[in-house]
Nucleic acid binder design. Structure first.
Lengths: 328, 328
DNA sequence: ACACCAGCTGCAACCGATTGCACACTGCCA
DNA sequence: TGGCAGTGTGCAATCGGTTGCAGCTGGTGT
């Protein structure tokens, strides 16, 4: 059985209150007493029970993280960032995976909210109203999604898409296909929007296909539709889709980048290893997780603080072998 | 503010004890009363505070999961399995990532152990003694590692390596390189052992290189040493290493499988997408996570149960394009 | 009519911490 | 010597649940 506060108190020859104070407000207790307590703590290997502390202070030192799919490298990176930042502040992280299910999302947040101080909600598929309903109860920080009145960190999708289009147009491409992701995805919407703006600006044309699942299989499924559009370049919802697309194109004997240039989004580790290596918009993933936790912790420390703090991260075009000049 | 037990009691017009019992031992309370309580719970959207319950019962409904690196797809799959199984039993999961650091492992388990009912420890890098020290305090189930007296689920590495060698020998290979993973990895040890046995049995020769990090970069670093051995086939610690190796071989103009056959271990999603697609030993990953949680929950339900329950999962050879007949 | 039992329900103690308040002690000044 | 501030400590209440025990009720057996 693990040692409790009272065990420490007994060993140190003081009251439980004193031990508690020695650990949480050291300035309040005499140096000599404090030393005795420290010795007792050491001897017993005591560690406070966070749950009990949480009951009183309303602060458990625990946050939740909800992601659509842990097997997607994008989300494991974000998770890793959250993890690392949380550990630095001695905060534990509950992780839950919704399997891309918007309903599960809402109910998971509900359940989690009783046991954590706040929640990092990553790429939620739920609608804005659901989101707002959730956040009335709970401290939530969004990642990869922006919503009025909810703090969060998201990516500048418009800018990213502009970079992609500028790159492709410079290579001579005029008709660009767009493989849209899940219909309920905020990123799908904003990337599509960014693309439309960008092609207008550069006098190119956009050929959207989809929606497709944000997976390798989704990319395989999209490939033939992309080819059918007659576009000479394609931007995909994310890298996983791009890599699936690459595979199907290869199977059909369509050469990348000679016959078709491919641009992904995310820059997951796999993308540099794909053949041809994938040109993509690199999104800072761990950083997003880190910032989200920062935001959440600040928010918790001072609840009345600017509730609508939002951070936007820029993506960065990484040119690799999957894009090339338009074949004349 | 979330509703408490007493709020429900007030609304239902009963005492807190009755509400508690209505929720945890329904048979003990009158059907009519139970219905009133249920109505009140519904109306208030009440959910019990697990932390408080945990204080009394010593059971928090929470388990911990410790993995070396969440960004490694092998571990995200295991995590996903753990996650899914835990959710089915209404158990929450703390996830912690050690960044491949054995010391962090021990301290993380220590910290976690105060807040969870038990811990799933995946591919620990710590030594056997440390492991046993940990488990004296805490309910721990191992994944991808076996240790005396600690329950867990691991893979039959000997058998997997035998399958790999049998496949390669059948293709005519007689000298097989082995890219070893981290020195402290249990898998490295057992896969190496299995390989040595297998090559003896099939009258082939083994050429070990390494140790290398279990990553893409590790594989790139290993490639040249593998080539230098003069082996015509290679088995790598895991798929990530194999894929890195593939990349470096490609860069050096060494054709796979004509000049060198490559076999990985794990069968992560990426492996099917590699070019050439990777022949590998498929390890059931989500299943391992699922079984580990099963084990842990059984253990918690009945602490005196066979403490040394161990499950061994078989890997299965998946033949793809990265292996072929030895070039005469 | 009385004892008894079973089935429900409530009282109150408890889990392991935190914290407002009161009290004890010291030292200093008048 | 008395008063007073300041520091350090302990008492007891509290958080949100659970649970042993006792009490109440109504029905049954004799």
């Amino acid at each position: 059985m693990a040692a409790t506060l009272r065990d420490v108190a007994r060993v140190a020859g003081v009251s439980a209150s004193t031990v508690s104070r020695a650990l949480t407000v050291p300035g309040m207790v005499n140096a000599a007493t404090r030393a005795r307590v420290a010795a007792a703590v050491e001897q017993l290997g005591y560690e406070p029970n966070r749950a009990a502390r949480g009951l009183i202070t309303g602060r458990t030192g625990t946050i939740g993280l909800v992601v659509p799919d842990l097997a997607n490298p994008f989300f494991s990176s974000v998770t890793k960032g959250v993890q690392a930042r949380a550990r630095r502040s001695d905060v534990a992280v509950f992780v839950a995976d919704t399997d891309e299910d918007a309903a599960a999302e809402v109910s998971l947040v509900r359940t989690l909210s009783k046991q954590v101080d706040g929640i990092v909600l990553c790429s939620p598929r739920a609608g804005d109203e659901d989101l707002r309903a959730i956040t009335s109860d709970t401290n939530v920080v969004l990642v990869n999604r922006a919503a009025d009145g909810i703090p969060g960190v998201s990516y500048d999708n418009e800018d990213g898409m502009r970079q992609a289009v500028a790159h492709l147009v410079a290579l001579g491409h005029r008709k660009i296909a767009w493989v849209a992701g899940p219909a309920t995805s905020w990123s799908t919407e904003h990337r599509g929007f960014g693309l439309r703006n960008a092609v207008d600006k550069y006098r190119a044309k956009l050929a959207p296909v989809g929606n497709f699942a944000p997976t390798y299989e989704g990319g395989m499924a999209a490939a033939d539709q992309v080819v059918a559009t007659g576009a000479t370049a394609v931007v995909t919802y994310n890298d996983l889709v791009a890599i699936g697309l690459l595979a199907r194109l290869h199977a059909r004997g369509i050469d990348v980048p000679r016959d078709l240039s491919v641009v992904g989004v995310d820059d997951i580790a796999m993308s540099g290893m794909a053949r041809p290596a994938l040109t993509t918009i690199r999104l800072p993933k761990q950083e997003a997780g880190r910032i989200a936790v920062d935001l959440l912790l600040t928010l918790l420390a001072d609840p009345d603080q600017a509730v609508d703090t939002r951070t936007t991260l820029r993506g960065e075009l990484v040119v690799r072998a999957s894009t090339g000049p338009k074949n004349p």
